[in-house]
């Protein structure tokens, strides 16, 4: 793994939220390096700052101090166009609440990022159908989100995240709103896609099912990186993980 380059590098990132007159330190100096093609889980209890860190990596939020590099480019230097471009082409987002656009069909949801990327309508539809088949809901392409189950909606979201062949998929609690089996299916799907397509998957989670597939687990506690465990160490300590929180 040593020959792999870092796709994400986070150096001394802090984030302060102002709640009225009180400053809340959500992140207190995070350093993190994520290698290309890995499956990373960011674990931590609620309020540990993992969602904040996650938003930073996704370019959705800017750090108070410190730098976030995506492929060695400081994202604080990017203007609005470049950020939009980054979100469109290079990062795929998956959310806990799926965030499928309610007024569009499954296929339209998947093709939207491709339209933004300047792809022609026919090509986008072709690729959209392929992606929907890849995630196993090719026959439900014309359904609106409310006609789909939670697991199916999350599959649409995964297909949509893959639309522009991103280098990174950011998944914020992807299994948070799914039942056990559906959650496991979605995790397996993400893992398979990460292996087949070499996509770096970064997921914020407190779902222990995620640990089995992760190449690396980053434990966040109280705004700091508690520890980083590779897969090998993980299998040894997995017996104690249940008692961690």
């Amino acid at each position: 793994m040593a020959e792999k380059t870092n796709i994400v590098r986070v150096t001394n990132v802090t984030k302060v939220f102002k709640l009225g007159k009180i400053d809340v330190d959500a992140l207190k100096g995070i350093n993190l390096e994520i290698s290309r093609g890995n499956y990373i889980s960011i674990m931590g209890p609620s309020g540990s700052g993992k969602s904040t860190l996650f938003n930073m990596i996704g370019g959705l939020d800017k750090p108070t101090s410190g730098k976030v590099y995506i492929d060695e480019v400081d994202i604080a230097q990017l203007d609005a166009y470049e950020l939009a471009w980054l979100r469109c082409r290079k990062i795929g987002y998956i959310f806990q609440t799926f965030n499928i656009i309610q007024v569009m069909t499954a296929l339209e949801n998947v093709t939207l990022p491709m339209i933004f990327a300047g792809m022609g309508n026919d090509a986008a539809v072709d690729k959209g159908m392929q992606l929907l088949e890849l995630v196993g809901i090719g026959d439900r392409y014309s359904h609106k989100p409310f006609e789909l189950s939670g697991g199916q909606q999350q599959r649409v979201a995964i297909a949509r995240a893959l639309a522009n062949d991103p280098a990174i998929i950011l998944a914020d609690e992807p299994t948070g709103n799914l039942d056990l089996t559906t959650g496991e299916e979605c995790i397996a799907l993400l893992k398979r896609l990460s292996q087949e397509r070499g996509v770096t998957v970064i997921s914020a989670t407190h779902d222990f099912k995620m640990l089995n597939v992760s190449d690396q687990v980053v434990w966040i506690r109280d705004g700091r990186v508690d520890k980083i465990e590779d897969r090998e160490e993980l299998s040894i300590s997995i017996g104690q993980i249940g008692t961690k929180e």
Binding site: A80, Y81, A84, R87, R89, N99, Q102, P113, A117
Partner: peptide, 13 residues
């Protein structure tokens, strides 16, 4: 939520 999602997918203002 819809607007935010679109922005995450790369929509400009």
């Amino acid at each position: 939520r819809e607007i935010g999602t679109m922005k995450c997918l790369g929509a400009l203002d």
